[in-house]
Design a protein around this nucleic acid. Structure first.
Lengths: 211, 211
DNA sequence: AAGCATTAGTAACATTGGTCACAGTGGCGG
DNA sequence: CCGCCACTGTGACCAATGTTACTAATGCTT
C-alpha cells in the first residue's frame, strides 16, 4: 500500500477526505530510471501525482530533435498532462524517469468532481499550473537570453540538485540531447568549464564543484 | 456600458448569471495601440478579459532584452496574470496593446468564489491555462528548433493574422526587439525574404505575400 | 589477448547571427 | 528649399555554435 508515502508527500496540502479519495481511486505507478512514462501523441487519461523520484519533461520537434523543458519532483504533478486530460488532446511532451520513480495515477473522471468539492484540490491544480508556467518561462529565458556555456552550467546544477548528488552519472551525448546541441560542442564547453575550475570530468560522470 | 460587447465575446462560454456577476464586479479598461498595460514587477490585483483588440505578451531579462511570447485576442485572458493573482506574486511579463484594445478587469477577490460556483468559469480558467501552455510550447519550439529566417516569417504571419491585414505597419527595429535580435540582422533577412518573393518591403511597412 | 563498442578529446572548417560603420532615402518642420 | 531625423541598405568583420573527421582511452566480450 502506498498510503504512507502519499500522506508523507501530500498531507500538508490535502485534507484527509481527499487523501482517502485519492487512495481509493488512484493507482500506484512506477518507473525505473531512464524509463519512458509518456510519449508524444499518447492519449492521456489519468494524471500522475509524484511520490518519490523525479521525472524529466522533454519537447521534441518533427525531426526528432529534443529539448529538456524541466524536471518534476516529489509533490509535483504534470500540469501539461493535466492540461491534456481536460482538453482531451494528446500529449505534447515526453516524460522520462530521471531516477527510480513512484507516483499515483488519478483518473481524470474524478478531477472535475474534486475541483468543485475540494478547495485544496483547486489550489493544488492552480498552483501546479503556476509552477509549470514559471518553469517554462525559465526555460525560455535560458534558450533566449543565455549562452550555451551558461545553459550548460545551469543544467548541471539543476541536475545535481534533482539527484541530490554533485557527481552526475551522465555522458556528453545525453547532455547534448537535453540541451539540443551536439556532443562535440558539449565536450568542448565541459573542458572549458573544467579549466575554469567549475567542474571535474571523469569518464561517465561529472562532478559539479561550484554550486 | 460594455454589456453588449461582453455578451458578444463571452455569451457562448459563460452562463447568464456569471455574465451578470462580471458586469457587476468588473471594470472596463482600455489601451491605445502601443500602450503598456502591465509592467514586469507590477503587483496585479485583477485579471483582464479581452473584449476587443489584441495584446502582446513580452518577456524581459535583467539587461532589458525583450522577447515576444505570444499574442492575446478577443475571448482570451492572461493566464500569466491569473497565475500571479492567485500566487500573490508580481508579474513576470510585460503586456503591451498591439491594437486599440478593450477589456474587463475582474477583481481576483471574486475568482475563488466563481471557481467553486460556476463550472463554466472553471472550464474557462483551465482552458486558458491550457492555451497559454500551448503558446509557450510554440514559442519554445520557435527559438529552440527554428532559424531566424523561419522565426521571422512566422512572426510576420502571426502578426498579419492578429491585425487582419497583410500589410504590417512595423519598423525593422520593432521586429528586432520582439525577436530579440538586432535591426541589421532583421533588415538583412527581410531583404532575403523579399528576394524569395515571400514579402514586399516598403518604408514603414511590410506586405506579407505567402500566407 | 584480440576485437569491438562506447565514450571522450581535438583540429579544421562552415554557418549563423551579431556588431560596427557608414551611406542612402523619404518625410516633415521651419 | 534646407536641414534634421527616423528608417533602411549594405559591406566587412567577429563570435558563437554546429559539423566533419579522426584519434585515443576504457571496458566488455569472446
Amino acid at each position: 500500500m502506498f498510503e504512507k508515502k502519499l500522506k508523507k508527500a501530500y498531507h500538508y496540502i490535502f485534507e484527509e477526505d481527499l487523501l482517502q479519495e485519492i487512495l481509493k481511486n488512484g493507482e500506484l505507478g512506477q518507473a525505473k530510471a531512464g524509463e519512458k512514462i509518456i510519449e508524444i501523441g499518447d492519449y492521456v487519461k489519468s494524471m500522475p501525482l509524484l511520490l518519490e523520484g523525479a521525472i524529466k519533461i522533454l519537447r521534441q520537434d518533427k525531426d526528432g530533435d529534443e529539448l529538456l523543458l524541466y524536471f518534476l519532483e516529489h509533490g509535483d504533478t504534470c500540469a501539461m498532462t493535466l492540461s491534456c486530460c481536460l482538453g482531451q488532446t494528446r500529449s505534447e511532451i515526453r516524460a522520462v524517469a530521471e531516477k527510480d520513480t513512484l507516483f499515483v495515477m488519478v483518473p481524470i473522471a474524478k478531477m472535475e468532481e474534486w475541483t468543485s468539492k475540494y478547495k485544496s484540490w483547486r489550489n493544488f491544480v492552480f498552483e501546479s499550473y503556476h509552477n509549470r508556467l514559471s518553469e517554462m518561462l525559465d526555460t525560455i529565458d535560458s534558450i533566449a537570453f543565455m549562452n550555451l556555456d551558461q545553459r550548460l552550467m545551469k543544467y548541471l546544477q539543476d541536475k545535481a540538485k534533482i539527484n541530490g548528488d554533485d557527481v552526475l552519472q551522465v555522458t556528453h551525448q545525453e547532455i547534448a540531447y537535453d540541451l539540443h546541441t551536439s556532443r562535440v560542442v558539449i565536450s568542448r564547453l565541459l573542458k572549458k568549464l573544467e579549466l575554469e575550475g567549475k567542474i571535474k570530468l571523469q569518464r561517465n560522470n561529472i562532478k559539479v564543484l561550484h554550486l
